[in-house]
Nucleic acid binder design. Structure first.
Lengths: 148, 148
DNA sequence: TTTACTGCAAAGGGTTTGCAACATG
DNA sequence: CATGTTGCAAACCCTTTGCAGTAAA
């Protein structure tokens, strides 16, 4: 548990408190699991990572932490929900590459130039749409080395 | 039913035949509904559009048409499946803007310059990943005018 | 005439919820 | 100690599937 990790727990606790929720051991374990992961985790992943927590608590905590802005739901190519720490918490905006066959989801970074061009262009599009844009998703979809 | 529409049916029929499937009235109605729409349609949308078809047939046909490369599944912000004609059929690559509150999904086009820069950059990323990339998704996520 | 397709109803499977006991601030 | 949280099991709901009858080629 390094400094960066401490910050994550600290922020999570504060964000929860703001909306009247507590930072329990289950929630701490969940954040810990997500912080350790190098890719979004599915429910089965999380159940494996925190075997003492019940499935329903994991679902409920993911909902609460998502509402608190600590956790983000990732839409893969399959119907399985996957979760990761919100970019706002990690301080690192990133994207995903996913396999349309097995559903695997990995984190990727894109060149800063591209990210910047995206921001500029999308801001314009957003304005015309009448939508209040909160973020964008850029995903690469294909087949992983195992599924080709 | 204009010329463009005829083409869509023609292509759909051919694509199905290739994999040993038939172009039935249900499938034709489904394609018709998707071709008429200006945004991806959900199952309830489709049931409303083709009231004589049973729900299970709609599900089964969507699966078959997706396998045939005629229809594409769109991942919104909610858990509801939405469907549209595949870009390869319409000949028009596009993206989506979606409301994270009500789940509405709309089509948008992005500047060609941006699209081109995306293609270039993503091709590089793909190479490093070991993935065989089939396409990318770029979505704007936010709140529609009704949900703000 | 062969065999894919359809409708109906039942089964599947991930997610949500009611409730009593428990733990947090 | 007031109230948010947990586990268990049942309920939910979108989606899939079995089966017998129908329709496409």
């Amino acid at each position: 548990m390094n400094t960066e990790r401490l910050d994550v727990h600290d922020v999570a606790a504060r964000q929860l408190t703001v909306i009247g929720l507590r930072y329990t051991s289950n929630r701490r374990a969940l954040i810990e699991a997500l912080a350790d992961a190098t890719a979004p985790l599915s429910i089965p992943d999380l159940m494996r990572a925190m075997p003492t927590a019940s499935q329903s608590s994991i679902y409920r905590n993911l909902t609460d932490l998502t509402n608190a802005g600590v956790v983000a739901r990732v839409q893969g190519t399959d119907e399985w929900a996957r979760f990761e720490l919100d970019d706002a918490i990690t301080g690192r905006h990133h994207h995903h590459i996913m396999c349309e066959s097995c559903g695997e989801v990995l984190d990727i970074d894109i060149p800063e130039v591209l990210e910047h061009q995206l921001d500029t262009n999308l801001a314009e599009l957003a304005e015309k749409s009448g939508y209040k844009i909160t973020h964008h998703r850029l995903d690469l979809v294909g087949r992983c080395s195992n599924c080709q």
